[in-house]
Amino acid sequence: MNLDIGCTRLLIGKCGEQHLLRNQAAYLLATAWHETGHTMQPIHERGAVSYFYKYEPGTSIGRRLGNVNKGDGYLFRGRGFVQITGRRNYTFSSAKLGADFVGNPELVLNPDHAADIIVLGMKSGWFTGKKLGDYVTLQQSLFIPARRIINGTDCASLIAGYAVGYDAALKAIGYGG
């Protein structure tokens, strides 16, 4: 895996600041690689405004995401390295990082903010309640079930394969050694 694509080095640095193990950093990078369409740049969820109607208040998804105002579905569409979605997630991330993501959702596309969200979120279980330490430790690298940190088991084997490659690349540069 190429560690010089997009914001990969920024993510590695943030992983180091949070004392992530090499295999944890590898899984985080694999997740970012997958979620950003292999760009390693913060992105926004694509689609016509009508695509985001499923996130509007009054829908089951919209209620779960904490969307309360008409237009919240599109306003709080997925952004970042892991595409946080919904007013509730933007409010939570704002409180944790001290940035006004609710007032200015585009701030989530700032690489520093997006990196903090993915690193702290995966480390602490912000997204689904599952965290890196539940699956990836000094003793084990359960990369396939680790997908539950972000999104159930969607593409779990594919991302696990990326993580193996990132683990080797991080080992080669001495991360965590």
Rank of each mutant, 00 (worst) to 15 (best):
L3S: 10
C7W: 11
T8M: 15
T8V: 15
L10N: 09
L10T: 03
I12K: 09
E17T: 00
Q18M: 10
Q18Y: 10
H19S: 14
L21D: 06
R22H: 08
A26K: 04
Y27T: 03
L29C: 05
A30E: 05
W33N: 09
W33D: 12
E35H: 02
T36E: 09
G37I: 04
H38L: 11
H38W: 10
T39G: 09
P42F: 01
P42R: 04
H44R: 15
E45I: 00
R46G: 15
G47R: 03
V49C: 12
Y51I: 07
Y51Q: 04
Y55H: 05
G58M: 07
T59C: 02
S60Y: 11
I61H: 05
G62C: 10
R63K: 13
R64Q: 13
R64G: 00
L65V: 00
L65Q: 09
N67S: 03
V68E: 15
N69K: 14
K70R: 15
G71K: 00
D72G: 07
D72M: 05
G73Q: 10
L75W: 11
L75C: 14
R77T: 02
G78Q: 07
G80Y: 07
F81Y: 12
Q83N: 11
T85R: 12
T85V: 09
R87L: 11
R87V: 08
R88H: 14
R88W: 12
N89A: 07
N89P: 10
Y90E: 08
T91G: 12
F92R: 13
F92W: 13
F92Y: 13
S93T: 05
S93I: 02
A95P: 00
A95V: 12
K96P: 11
L97I: 02
G98F: 02
A99M: 07
D100L: 03
V102M: 00
P105F: 06
V108H: 00
L109G: 07
L109E: 07
N110G: 00
A115K: 01
D116K: 08
I117S: 06
I117L: 05
I118H: 06
V119Y: 09
G121D: 01
M122D: 05
M122P: 10
S124I: 00
F127S: 00
T128K: 03
T128R: 01
T128H: 02
T128L: 05
T128G: 08
T128N: 05
G129W: 02
K130W: 10
K130T: 04
K130E: 10
L132N: 11
Y135L: 08
Y135I: 04
Y135Q: 06
L138A: 15
L138W: 14
Q139P: 01
Q139C: 14
S141L: 08
L142T: 12
F143S: 10
F143R: 03
I144E: 15
I149Y: 03
T153G: 14
C155K: 13
A156N: 08
A156I: 05
S157K: 04
I159P: 01
I159E: 00
G165I: 02
G165E: 12
G165A: 06
Y166H: 04
Y166L: 01
D167H: 11
D167A: 13
L170D: 11
A172S: 11
Y175I: 04
G176R: 09
G177Y: 13
G177I: 13
G177Q: 12
